[in-house]
Amino acid sequence: MLKFTEDHEWLALDGHVATVGITKHAAELLGDLVFVQVPAVGTKLAKGSAAAVVESVKAASDVFAPLDGEVTEVNDAAVSNPALVNEDPQGRGWLFKMKLADLKAFDALMDEAQYTKLTG
C-alpha cells in the first residue's frame, strides 16, 4: 500500500525499507524532467531535509526526505533518463530507497484517499 506526504512524495514499504518517489500529481505539475539528482547510498536523512532534486526546463525542485532513515539504494535509471519519472512516477520512476528509523511514522502518513483529497 502506498503512503503519501504533503510534499507530494509517495512511499512503498518492504520490510524496513521504503521506496520513495514523486507522485503522479507532482510529475504532471513539474512537466518534463531534464535532470534528477539522488542522494548517495549511506546518506542519513532527517525528515524534511533536501534529499533529491528534480529539475524541469524551467525550475529546480527539492525532494524532501519524507521520514528519518538511511539511503540504501538509488534509481540510476531515473538519473540517466529523467523522462522515466514522467512516464511512470509511481513505479519505474522511483528515486531512492531508505531504511526507516521508525516504522510507526510510516503508518502515520496519508493513504491514497487522503492524498487525493489534498490534491483534488
Binding site: 510534499d7 507530494h8 524551467k58 529546480a60 525542485s61 524532501f64
Partner: peptide, 9 residues
C-alpha cells in the same frame, strides 16, 4: 517536494 521560485513568475 517543493518548487523554487520559477523565473517565469
Amino acid at each position: 517536494m517543493s518548487g523554487e521560485a520559477s523565473s517565469t513568475s
